[in-house]
Computed example of a mutant assay.
Amino acid sequence: MTEKRKGARSIKDIPADILIQLNRGEIETANLTEWLAVDQRLLLENLLQQNNRSEYLEPIVKKIDQLKKQTVNTINETIGLGILDFVLKNEDAEFLSKLSTHPADLVRCWAAYTVGRNNTFNTEEKFKKIQPFASDTHFGVREICWMTVRPDISKNLKESLSILSEWTKHENENIRRFSSESTRPRGVWCEHIDALKQNPGLGLEILEPLKSDSSRYVQDSVGNWLNDASKSQPEFVVEICDEWLRESNTKETQYIIKKALRTIRK
């Protein structure tokens, strides 16, 4: 079973047959090393050939070549947006449906961009359609999918926070984690949300329900959210942490607070 593969620790140690399967889109990456090793151009070429869409290839590759900085994430985004462009022009919903359930995690990442950056959807529709990606079993898809809707969150902050506050009640920890990770004031590999940097209290409708969440994955995200906020509004974060300790002195809340205050306590 591919899920049980631990994956090599360095790119040079990835077995040749595994790399071939990864680039053909037959299996998922097992860890970050494999994720970085996949040749996304080759994966795209194979995907398009397998689905009789080879005419999509050249224009997308051209856009990759024009990138000032070629990283896994910038290439990923460029391919996702390139596919979205063709799908909209050709009304190619059939191809799109195959991508979102594809065996290869990087292909599902491209599919997330075709949802998160598809401006024929309003904010509510985007969130509804992105939720299956937020609950994906693969770490890479979960990270990419919140980045795809981050511009919408920033632009439509009040509505986004309102929708995501409902996600904090979801039974799936990955979906609960999405609600806090996608709204972090500073975030990782993404634009900051200035409104939340200046007024982190706006995010309390998401943070409060998660302050004693049972999942370590969610706890880490909430702690990081507050740590982000502490860099511009330290007094607010100290106040919230004190309040939470009074209201909810659980080991989960204590863990979150330790993470939240790490920059302040340096």
Rank of each mutant, 00 (worst) to 15 (best):
E3W: 10
E3Q: 13
E3T: 12
G7P: 08
S10W: 05
I14H: 04
A16S: 13
I18W: 03
L19Q: 14
R24V: 01
I27S: 12
N31R: 00
L32V: 09
W35K: 02
W35I: 02
W35L: 11
L36I: 09
D39Q: 03
Q40N: 01
E45L: 02
R53S: 13
L57Q: 04
E58V: 10
P59V: 04
I60V: 12
V61D: 12
K62E: 15
K62H: 15
I64F: 08
Q70F: 00
V72Y: 07
E77H: 09
G82I: 03
L84V: 05
D92L: 05
L96E: 05
P103F: 04
A104K: 02
D105P: 00
R108F: 07
A112H: 05
R117A: 14
T120C: 07
T123L: 13
K126W: 02
A134F: 10
S135C: 08
S135E: 15
H138E: 14
I144Q: 10
I144F: 07
W146F: 12
T148C: 07
R150Q: 13
D152E: 13
N156R: 11
N156K: 13
K158Y: 06
L161G: 07
L164F: 08
W167R: 01
T168E: 01
H170P: 15
H170T: 05
H170Q: 09
E171K: 11
E173P: 14
E173C: 09
R177F: 00
S180D: 03
S182Q: 01
T183A: 07
P185I: 02
C190H: 03
H192L: 08
H192V: 09
I193Q: 04
K197N: 11
K197D: 01
G201M: 06
P209K: 00
L210H: 00
R216H: 02
R216D: 04
V218W: 00
V222W: 00
N224P: 11
S230L: 05
K231W: 03
V237P: 06
I240R: 13
C241K: 11
C241F: 08
W244A: 00
S248Y: 03
T250P: 10
K251R: 15
K251G: 04
E252N: 11
Y255D: 08
I256F: 10
I256L: 11
I256A: 14
I257K: 14
R262S: 03
I264T: 00
I264C: 01
I264F: 01
I264A: 01
K266Q: 13
